[in-house]
Design a protein around this nucleic acid. Structure first.
Length: 555
RNA sequence: GCGCUCGUAGCUCAACUGGACAGAGCAUCUGACUACGGAUCAGAAGGUUGGGGGUUCGAAUCCUCCCGAGCGCACCA
């Protein structure tokens, strides 16, 4: 059974589970083990909540599902503090309708809770860490990194709303071959800028930012670096600092702040790399062959063993990866989440196997893989490469569409499926741009509220019982789903669920706006509707806050 | 060749992880307030969920085999 918390929807679920359990005990002699699942039916005709309990019990009780449903219904109490009706439908669903008394009670709870509405305690007391972005400082962040960055940050926010303490960490490596080539590329540009003959390394970085970095070196050192050898760290260091500064700025612009940057090099300095190898050797999971150190991945179902340390003495990236995850687990996190692109999909199982073999509970590691982004520009997709400088940077994208649209587009889709990022669609300012639908609803309500403040005395308590129009009650029911939706999105690490939900809320609001007026109605009703709008604004605001998107008061 | 991830309306995607009649937004067509923001709302049309077989009360979802796409398969990261 699903873990339940104290928020409104959970409380209704808990109530339904309890009365169903009691009813079940009444209709059978022997105790029956049953998983009671409560869900919201797709169609409003089927009530506000439903359970398939009767169907799942057909085998155990040896009775047809509708018979069981009838018996259960007869044994259920009908407390109008919670429910107004219990119905049986279809093959044996038991459908519940919430009482108005319950709805109004919950609505006033939203108003009281305000900016905290939607927070739950599902992960209260849990310490979590999420590692994301983690791009090596070889160039500016591109749209390709964007999905990773925004997913990581938003999942962190979701988890915080379920009570967890979350650390955001950026893992990087400034010592590998890529970085060496980067330094050599800067040096080549430096020489060229000073009129010296020089060529980029064969697989050097071609982007214009390399030349910019070279120019800053000229500003700082003039010609004094001409005699430096190609591998002099001054070039690489300059590049790293400039690029990291740039990356931080981009992240900040996207409303992302890291708690820590972890340099892979640390793992060499503190000996944890060596420790992993020797412990794997003790377990006979690592061995020497052909001058290299191998990891016995065949023991975990792989076809081939994997090299951990090359015959040159240099570890492959897998080894520090293992050490890094152990480092994280040793820091005491209950859960460590990795946000990985599809290219890592085949390699992380090795890390998980190693961590498990070394005596850690690998369930504490949670790898989230997202599929790559296809950029569509003028109707045609194009491939990006940092090295060839064939990319759209996140800064360029935000120059075009702003950070709200940028975040929204990356969050809109299921992480596990390919995302098509259509620049033309994102650039649209009007109705075609999906983010505006939400922001418009927020701005519209705000405008109504400020007008209502002038016309009515809103200090008196609203009589919420006046909100009986179908557009009003469905809107209230939508609002009550919010904490549950946040918790679900957090649990599945899928922010798009929250977006879909907020779109529904906005749609319900627009429908309400169309059907129900505020100004011009009897003052009591107007005041009650204003209260409802405040609750809607609360949900939109809190939801957009989780998504890291602005909730504008006018547009 | 092997592994992973996928395939849903013309297009981009949902579907609460096995539930009721597969839903939204674009695009197309038809309508709506002389009043609170028309960046809105109502309606129409659009489907053999890539295909076959299986599991069961029940399948887009699970198993299997085909077809098709993307990504991996280094002593690169």
């Amino acid at each position: 059974m699903r873990h339940l918390t104290s928020s409104s929807c959970f409380r209704m679920k808990a109530y339904l589970v309890r009365i169903l359990t009691e009813a079940l005990a009444k209709i059978t002699d022997q105790p029956v083990q049953a998983d009671i699942i409560i869900e919201k039916p797709r169609s409003a005709d089927h009530g506000d909540a439903a359970t398939n309990l009767a169907m799942t019990l057909t085998k155990k009780l040896g009775m047809p599902p509708r018979k069981i449903a009838e018996a259960l219904k007869a044994a259920l109490p009908l407390d109008d503090g919670y429910l107004s009706a219990v119905e049986i439908a279809g093959p044996g669903f038991i459908n519940f309708r919430f009482s108005e008394k319950w709805l109004y009670g919950q609505l006033s709870e939203i108003l009281e809770t305000g900016a905290g509405y939607g927070k739950t305690t599902e992960n209260a007391g849990k310490k979590m860490q999420i590692e994301f972005v983690s791009a090596n400082p070889t160039g500016p962040l591109t749209v390709g990194h964007g999905r990773n960055a925004v997913l990581g940050d938003t999942i962190a926010r979701l988890l915080e709303w379920t009570g967890a303490a979350v650390d955001r960490e950026y893992y990087f490596n400034n010592a590998g071959r890529q970085m060496r080539v980067l330094g050599e590329s800067v040096r080549a540009r430096y020489l060229q800028e000073l009129g010296q003959p020089a060529e980029l390394p064969e697989d050097g970085y071609q982007g214009g930012y390399i030349t910019d970095i070279a120019k800053t070196l000229i500003d700082a050192h003039e010609e004094s670096l001409l005699g430096c050898p190609p591998n002099d760290p001054v070039f690489k260091n300059a590049a790293e600092h400039a690029i990291f500064a740039d990356i931080r700025k981009t992240l900040e612009r996207m409303n992302i702040r890291m708690d820590s940057f972890f340099n892979e090099h640390t793992l060499y300095e503190d000996g944890s790399i060596d420790r992993v190898v020797s412990r794997l050797r003790e377990l006979d999971l690592a061995y020497d062959a052909d001058g290299a150190v191998w990891f016995r991945t065949t023991k975990f179902g792989k076809e081939k063993d994997t090299v951990l340390v090359k015959s040159t003495g240099e570890p492959t990236y897998r080894l520090p990866d293992i050490a890094y995850h152990i480092n994280k687990l040793d820091r005491g996190y209950d859960t460590c989440i990795d946000i990985f692109g599809a290219d890592h999909i085949a390699t992380y199982p090795d890390v998980v196997s190693a961590v498990e073999a070394l005596g850690y509970d690998s369930k504490r590691i949670d790898v989230q893989v997202y599929q790559f982004v296809t950029i569509v520009k003028e109707g045609i997709p194009f491939k990006m490469s940092t090295r060839k400088a064939n990319f759209v940077t996140l800064d360029e994208l935000m120059d075009m569409v702003g950070s709200d649209v940028t975040r929204f587009f990356f969050l809109m889709r299921t992480p596990g499926t390919h995302l098509e990022f259509d620049i033309a669609e994102a650039t649209q300012q009007g109705e075609k741009n999906p983010v505006f639908y939400l922001q418009y609803a927020h701005a519209r309500i705000h405008s109504i509220l400020s007008k209502a403040t002038e016309e009515y005395d809103l200090s008196a308590e609203a009589d919420l019982g006046l909100l009986t129009h179908p557009a009003e009650t469905t809107l209230i029911k939508d609002l009550l789903q919010f904490p549950d939706m946040v918790a679900q999105a957090a649990h599945h690490r899928e922010p798009h669920r929250l977006i879909n939900y907020l779109n529904e809320v906005a749609a319900s609001f627009h429908r309400f706006y169309h059907d129900c007026r505020i100004m011009g109605e009897a003052p009591e009703l107007a005041v009650a509707r204003v209260a409802l709008l405040r609750a809607v604004v609360t949900v939109l605001n809190n939801g957009l806050t989780i998504l890291g998107i602005q909730a504008p008061e006018r547009m």
